[in-house]
Each structure stands twice: as structure tokens, then as C-alpha cells.
Amino acid sequence: MKKLLLILFLPLLFVGVCAMVAPADQGEEANAKIKAIYIYNFTKYIEWPDDYKQGNFVVGVIGNSAALLGELNKMASTKTVGAQKFEIKSISSIGDVAQCHIVYILNESSAQLPDVIGKTKGKSALIVTDKDGLATKGSAINFVIVENKQKIELNKSNIEKYKLKVAAQLVEMAVAVK
């Protein structure tokens, strides 16, 4: 009878089976992916001068974001700009921006915008920033948040002064610069 009573005791339910789903700490990666898609799109809607169509297509990143660098490197491993291969650089010395086709200044490094403008004078670099108001302070394309959504502001004159040609569709898709 003892044995029977032990068997009758219902076991500890489904505790082992219904363990919590691990939280996917992927918000940063998803955010970075959206930025990488935008950056790849810039290469389709913006034309660099002929002398920039040789060698690698260099994207320089100023600031620390492992997620963004990871996404850009993934992009670089599968995509090209015409015949040019992508080269993703984490910029530690501001002098390196002179070799870049695109310079992306992350939010926390926004204070470096004036230096970047100085170092890219006379070059054909697309300056991309990530802080409200920078489109009026020399940035060509500035990432902005509109109703939780990642969008871009585009300052056409800041693009053209670097001898870059921007397609009308990209201008239309960007939000107006405040």
C-alpha cells in the first residue's frame, strides 16, 4: 500500500518543461540592422565622383557600437557597391576620415562633427550623423526618430558641396530638415 501511495502523489508538474523563454537581447542588433540597411541604400541613391569608384568603398564609423560594426561587417561580406568591395573601419584617429566614402558619426561622438567636416573638406565623403539638429550643422544625412521609427533627414546642399549626386527619390523619402 505504501508503494501505491507514493505513486499516487502527483509529481512536480511541468516545471522543467515550461522554463521561461530566454529574453532575446536583440534590440540593439535590430536597431543596427535598420541603420545598415539605410547605409546600403545610400550607396544606391548617391553617386560618388569617378575617382572614388576604384578600390574599396570605405565606411568609417566614429564611436563605439559593436552591434553596428557587426551589422556593417555582415553587410560588407555579402554586398558591394558596383565592383567595389565594402571596407568597414572603426575610426580611432580623425585623420582617417579623409579616406572614407561614408563617415558615420554615432550619437555619443557627435561633438566630433566639426573636426570631421574640417578633415573632409575638398573630399567626397558623405557625412552621416545620429543626433537631432546636426543636419543643419554640416551633416549630409542625419538619423532621426519619428514616432518610434528610424528615419532620415537629408540636407541636399551638404551632400552636393562634397561633389556627390543624390537621387530625387532619396530626397523625397527623407523627412524635412527642421
Binding site: M20, V21, P23, A24, Q26, G27, E29, A30, K33, I34, A36, I37, Y38, Y40, N41, K44, K74, M75, T78, K79, L170, M173
Partner: peptide, 26 residues
């Protein structure tokens, strides 16, 4: 878990996108 299901679904939607996705589609 319900929260995580929706969260992961949203993240997957973005992560499954190709890099050459057009801005309108993005």
C-alpha cells in the same frame, strides 16, 4: 513569455530583412 513572443517576432522581422531592402519596404 507572451511579451517575449511578440518581441522576438518583431526582432525577427527586422533581422530577416536583406541589406538591399528598399527604404520604402524598410
Amino acid at each position: 513569455n507572451m511579451g517575449i513572443l511578440y518581441y522576438n517576432q518583431a526582432v525577427n522581422l527586422i533581422n530577416q530583412s536583406d541589406y538591399d531592402l528598399d527604404i520604402v519596404a524598410l
